[in-house]
Design a protein around this nucleic acid. Structure first.
Length: 297
DNA sequence: CGCGGTCAAGTGGCT
DNA sequence: AGCCACTTGACCGCG
């Protein structure tokens, strides 16, 4: 089991998500920002290896405005050697990588332009993983999208877009994750049936929206959607409910007892765990110790 | 030089 | 009807 955290490392004094305003877009600014972001990413990956954290989510913001029409620069070619070096480092250290395109990526939107923009964003994020020459166990995770008052029609539209509009390079990496209000695990399993996409399991979202499946059963269902060769083992997002806060709100730091219980409950299922917790690597380091004590990492 | 309003983009639930 | 949250804050103009 690999354990990781998303996007940013609070210990290091750099950010891989630096950006700038659309109004101040220049090619020079783009090159400078991407160079800084990739340099920071390298430092984060090295930190992760040194600390036994072998799962990491790359920020969507590595390349500002990557899928926006204003950005016509061939950054892929310009930074190709850097991406290749990053990818070699990742592969040499046997790290698992994911990306999570943000809420603006909606493949089943009734708005054609939204779908086009979404695909452009997926092509961008997939191309990062391609430029790193990572295999298809490196994933892009998105949600089911909107329901628009009729979820079964929306699911059908998702599948149609998947089959008729997505490039193979995106399909090879795309996964769907249960969200906290619209697409339950069962809905995602249906999307899996229609497309073959693996299902990423989010335990807190599952607590918010479910069809009565207990955790160990749910995780088993999700796990079976992963082809061990093509997709690798199940990826999941782990977090716990912040006490007294809005439903779905993450705890600021890992609840160690809950994570311990979670590991006991999922014994026997192979999975990589992404900790969606505010304090990032601090919690990931605690999680590693708990997993080691139980012989899981 | 620190604060806070605002930032490319969508959706649905809450107030 | 407007605000807020979402996998992740960061930028930049103003005082």
């Amino acid at each position: 089991m690999k354990i990781g955290y998303p996007c940013i490392n609070w210990t290091l004094d750099c950010s891989p998500s630096r950006t700038f305003r659309l109004a101040s877009y220049t090619e020079e600014r783009l090159l400078e920002t991407v160079a800084q972001n990739l340099a920071c990413l390298r430092r984060i990956l090295e930190y992760n290896v040194q600390h036994g954290l072998f799962f990491f989510r790359l920020t969507s913001d590595l390349v500002p405005f990557a899928s926006h029409p204003i950005n016509t620069y061939n950054w892929q070619e310009h930074f190709k050697p850097t991406f290749l070096e990053l990818g070699e480092y990742i592969k040499r250290n046997n790290m698992r990588i994911s990306m999570h395109p943000d809420q603006f990526v909606v493949l089943n939107s009734p708005n054609e332009q939204t779908v086009k923009n979404s695909i452009a964003e997926l092509v961008y994020q997939g191309s990062i993983l391609d430029l790193m020459e990572l295999d298809t166990t490196a994933k892009l995770q998105i949600h089911g999208g909107g329901a628009y008052g009729d979820k079964s029609t929306a699911i059908g539209r998702f599948a149609e877009v998947y089959h008729t509009m997505l490039p193979e390079a995106v399909k090879a990496r795309l996964c769907v994750e249960n969200d906290d209000r619209t697409y339950s695990l069962l809905d995602c399993l249906q999307l899996h049936e229609l497309t073959g996409m693996p299902v990423i399991f989010d335990n807190l979202h599952h607590e918010c929206v479910n069809n009565g499946e207990p955790l160990n059963e749910a995780i088993q269902f999700a796990s079976e959607t992963w082809d061990p060769v093509k997709d690798g083992i199940l990826m999941m997002d782990y977090s716990s409910q912040a006490y007294g806060e809005r439903k779905g709100k993450h705890t600021p730091s890992i609840e160690e007892q809950l994570f311990h219980d979670f590991l006991l409950e999922t014994e026997g299922v192979e999975l990589d765990v992404m900790l969606e917790i505010k304090d990032k690597e601090a919690s990931a380091l605690k999680a590693i110790e708990i997993a080691k004590a139980l012989g899981r990492a």
